[in-house]
Amino acid sequence: PIEDLFTSLNRHIQRSEFTQAVKVANQVLSVAPGDEDAIRCKVVALIKADKIEEALSAIQSSQKVSFDFSFYKAYCLYRQNKLDEALEVLEKQDKTQPSMLLESQILYRLGKMDACVDICRNLQKAKIDSLEINLVAGLISAGRASE
């Protein structure tokens, strides 16, 4: 039954066995095509397994799912260094902490250091671990080390 598959999926996720998790997510999808939890698990497991191209394909083939994969799609494009495309995807979605983090990383790679720093400063209230590292990197690269 599908509950057993989800139990197995959960176990693989807990153990960071991401390739196995993808396999079990596919088993769920073979009996329940379009299962949103299974598709989400599959996409995240592919990203965590560093299979970025496959993650993008999975996102592409899940158009009917109501979950908004924009952030994941933008992240995959960022990993492929398709920075302008990634920004385009982000601009179409509401701003969230993750999307702002990603935007700041994309801007950094694009050499837009002031914009990168602005976003990190906006996120400072959110107390995200290690955010200062990226803020300082942006400041130094912007020639604003004194700040």
């Binding site: 996720i13 939890d37 995240v44 990203i47 992240y75 902490q97 993750p98 990383q105 950094y108 671990d129």
Partner: peptide, 21 residues
Amino acid sequence: NPIVLDLAYNAIDFPSIENRM
């Protein structure tokens, strides 16, 4: 240039599937 951490990666989480088990 200084290293920038991939903090966006840490924000990518599995959905809760407790209620599916």
